[in-house]
Every structure is written in structure tokens, then in C-alpha cells.
Design a protein around this nucleic acid. Structure first.
Lengths: 195, 195
DNA sequence: CGTACTTGACTGACTAGTCAGTCAACGATG
DNA sequence: CATCGTTGACTGACTAGTCAGTCAAGTACG
């Protein structure tokens, strides 16, 4: 029952953040979105910051759950990961946009918030390692050229992140498709597999 | 004299934004940093939003001034652009970091602010066109393979943006070097010039 | 003198957080 | 079986403080 309420608060906080933006977000906004009193929020989370740190953890957890496991074909899995990170997989594009907008808002707070920084670093390391592992396996199976897996993962993920930022901040969804094409056709198929 | 005061306010706003972050930034913070009263800020800028929109324009202008002009060698100029965008050129790395942190904070507001969105879109288009033009010239001179200049520019700039975000938000400066290497050695030298 | 610039004191709206108290559920006890 | 006490979840009213923005009054300067 408590867990259920906390979940309800998380979802309300997420929606309120998407609507108001981090800078304008108030506890009252969240309470309104949650159909409860501000006091309930403070009952479950001591401070506004605690609540938002919990939200970040919640969102990152939800995100990591969507990253698929190994399936044998390195090239196919790498392309699948790129698709997932760029377009959000089978999720609605608007939902994917809202999620990434919220994540960007939280990410932009990291330089001023140690707790945010730690959580993002942990998540980034996990995603980075996942991609690097696929590249490494591709090299082992002979499917990929002998590249530096870390560097390749950093390259792919940086490009994906950059495209998402551009999409979110200026609404350029052509950037998503362009970068997907560049990564799949040029980097993966045109350079990585062309051993 | 008016222009001088506005410039002083811009610099103070920039410093205050770097120190406090967008969400916590107050007009009093800016006034303190400027050694003036809040009222002076309101004399020159009607609202806080006006002031921050002006700051974004100011920062983008300063940034665009740093982008070098054509110099004949496409490969050299492309690498120079990558270096500039990743490491800030000849500027101090801390200064480059502060600048990009401030830009990220402002960028994260774009989804909720039309004026920010327009300015960022204009700037992005300009930078994008600059890089695409260099790629195009490289193709014309025979230095580069016959790629899609737009897509290549989007790819390069996205990766640079992504690396910067990672550097700024979780402090990973290895990401900067890794992505620089991937772009210069793999994308430019390993793929683009290898016609 | 008047125009451009700058200030300190002020205000009303809004903010995070507190606190006493309500209410339903539940177990114990006579 | 009835009633009492306890507990956890939750609320509405409140407070102390902060915020952007205003305004009358002043100064410097051409």
C-alpha cells in the first residue's frame, strides 16, 4: 500500500516535471497532479530534493529494464540498441520525447547536485558497458573489425545522446533519423563490419 | 555607456548562472554578481526571462564568433572544428566547461520556452551548415569520399554534443578524448578520407 | 534644465516545510 | 461480542521566508 502510494507520487512527479519543467516545478504542482495534499509528499519524502532524486532513480531503473540482453548476433544487437536508444523501441514517440525531456532537465541539474551526478554516472557506466560488451563480442566472433570497444561505445552513445538533445531542444526529429542512418549505415555497416 | 552596462549585466548573469544553476538563479544573485541593484537589471530588461533570453543570444553570438572561416584544407579544417567544439580551442578548459554548463542549463529550458528554442535552432542550423559546407568542399576537391554532407555533419555534431553532455554532467573528461579520437581517427581519417 | 541612469524601500504573490489533528484499520482485553 | 487503545496514512491550515517586479527619489552628465 505504501509502495503503491510512492509509485503514484513518482508518476505524478514525472508528469508534473514534464509539464512545468524543473525550474518552475513546485510541490503544489506535484500534489495537484497526484490528487493529494502537499503534506502527503512530505510524509513520504522529507524534502523536494529527496523526491526528485527518487524520481531520477525511478526513471533510470525503468530505462535500464528496457535494455535487452544478449541474443547472439552482435551486428543485429548493436543496431537494435541504437534503434532503442534513438527512437525508444516500441514505445510511443511522444512518450519517448517526454521521457527524454524529463531526463534532460534532471541531467542539467547534475553539475549542482552530487546525488544526481552519482546516479547518472552509474547509469551511464552501465549502458556504456552494455554497448562495449556487444562490440567486444562482435570482435571475438569475427563479425567486427578489431576496434577499441570502449571508444566505439563512447562514440555511438555520444552521437545518440547528441541527436536526442537536438531533437528535444529544438524539435528537429530529422536529426534522429539522420544520426540513426549515420550510425547504422556508416559506422556499423560501413566501417565496423567491413573488416 | 548603456551598452557597457548591459555588457556588465550579461557577464554577471553568466557568472551567476554558472554558480547557482538555472533553477536556483535569482535576480538578487545577478545583482550581487554585478555589484548593482536589482532595479538596475529591471531598468535594462523588463523581466527575468528577457534577461536570460538576452544572455542566450549573447553567449551564442560569442560562440559563433569563434568558429573559424574556410582555410583551404577540408580535412584540416574539419579536424580543427572538432577540436574547437570538443575542447574549446585555445580557451581554458575550466572556462569551456563553465560555458557549456551554462549552455546546457539554457538548452534544457528550450522545451518550455519558445524564444530559447528559436535562438538555439538558428545557432544549430548555422553550425550545422558550417560543418556540412566543409564536408561538401572536401568531396568537391576529391579529399573526401562521396558521402551525404548533411548526414555527416549531423553525425559529427551529435557525437560532439553527446560527449560534452557526458563530460559536464558526470565529469567524465575521458569521454571528450575518446570521442575526439573516434571522430578524427575513425570517422574522418578512417572512413571519410579513405575514398 | 532635462534626460539617462541608478538606488533602497517596498509589496503581493508564492514557496517549502510544519504541525495538530482526522480517520479507518486492527488487535487486545474485559 | 463490544469497546478501548494504538498505529499508519493522510489532510488543511499555518508560518517564515523568498521571489520578481514597482516606485518615488535621487545623482550625474551633456
Amino acid at each position: 500500500m505504501v509502495e503503491e502510494t510512492r509509485e503514484r507520487i513518482m508518476e505524478a512527479t514525472y508528469r508534473a516535471l514534464c509539464e512545468q519543467g524543473y525550474a518552475a516545478l513546485t510541490m503544489q504542482d506535484i500534489a495537484d497532479e497526484c490528487d493529494c495534499s502537499k503534506s502527503l509528499l512530505h510524509y513520504h519524502f522529507d524534502t523536494k530534493e529527496d523526491l526528485l532524486v527518487a524520481l531520477l532513480a525511478h526513471l533510470l531503473e525503468r530505462f535500464e529494464d528496457r535494455v535487452p540482453v544478449d541474443d547472439g548476433d552482435p551486428r543485429g544487437q548493436l543496431v537494435e540498441l541504437v534503434e532503442l536508444f534513438v527512437f525508444g523501441g516500441d514505445r510511443d514517440l511522444d512518450e519517448h520525447r517526454a521521457f527524454n525531456t524529463a531526463m534532460l532537465e534532471l541531467r542539467a541539474q547534475a553539475p549542482h547536485n552530487e546525488a544526481f551526478r552519482r546516479q547518472l554516472a552509474e547509469n551511464d557506466a552501465h549502458v556504456h558497458a552494455t554497448v562495449a560488451a556487444v562490440v567486444e563480442r562482435g570482435i571475438e566472433t569475427g563479425a567486427f573489425r578489431e576496434v577499441d570497444p570502449e571508444r566505439t561505445a563512447a562514440h555511438l552513445l555520444a552521437a545518440i545522446q547528441g541527436a536526442r538533445i537536438r531533437w528535444i531542444t529544438i524539435g528537429d526529429d530529422a536529426a534522429l533519423r539522420e544520426v540513426r542512418e549515420a550510425l547504422v549505415s556508416d559506422v556499423v555497416d560501413g566501417w565496423l563490419v567491413a573488416g
